[in-house]
Amino acid sequence: MKNKKTTPKKPMSDKQFGWLLIAPLCFVLAVFMLYPTVYAVVMSFTKYLMKGTPTWIGADNYRYILHNSEMWNSLGRTGLTVIICIVFELVLGMLLALLLNRDFRGQGIVRGLCFMPLLISPLAMSLIWSYILNNQYGIVNIILGWFNIYNIPWFSSVSMAKYTIMGMTIWQWLPFSTFVLLAGLKGLPKDQFEAAQVDGSSSWNTFWRLTVPTLKPLIMIIVLLRVMSLIRTYDPLYGTTRGGLGTETFDWYVYRMGFVKYDVGRGTALGVFSLVITLLISNVLYSQLMKALKKR
């Protein structure tokens, strides 16, 4: 009789074990991200009003949205919001980061206070600002009234409302860029700056030629994340103008199409259009980020 030879179980390789660990995440992503995205793309080629069955209509929904002036207007406004907000968030964020990078008494409290806007829900934030900036009863206009400045139409003038919305957004997200840049400033290599000082470089020259380039990867991360977020600007409008006074953003337009008209076909077409734009911009920014990291 032949001895039964037991073959030892082959241990799982690190690679296999790694896949096993990320399997739940892949499952979650497939169910909650991949499937809805593919489903949305399919639905964007149908006419479906949440009643009956979807009807295949080819590219009609895309034709509709691309020929719709409201869509282009809202997209233009969103583009303006993205540019203005990012510029202000970066410039002001850098200034605040430079300030907070210095040692002073009570810096812990100041830093904590600076962080607070980020902790407020964007929806609550929009409601709070709508009261603060109310034309007649808002605390800001009341204080301005003491200086004979009356009735600033923060949310009630077509020429002003969109900038007020941008101001609210900047206020809320400024801590994000501030603290990312502050972290970057804290981690700057000291020897290069000491060398620059020895060489007699001016403060401005050191900042512009050394600090900014060294922080470039972080700046690119801020721009990348904020672009992706700002394209979806929605909450600040909810408690204030609700898209009125020329403030309708692209996402508000998508909301109206998808959740007021319940036009699943056009709504998903807009969603896919938004996704493509976001991916294109993000791709460009991401490659810039990678370049910046390589240079480092």
């Binding site: 109310n134 034309n135 007649q136 009863y137 009735n151 139409p153 949310f155 009630s156 003038s157 077509v158 409302a161 204030t240 103008t241 009125g244 006074l245």
Partner: peptide, 21 residues
């Protein structure tokens, strides 16, 4: 109509009337 009417609904209009404005 009072300043702010451009972004008003019934709460603003009502409060203006109730305040005597």
């Amino acid at each position: 109509s009072p300043p702010g009417t451009e972004n008003a609904f019934w709460d603003f209009a009502g409060s203006q009337f109730a305040a005597g404005n």
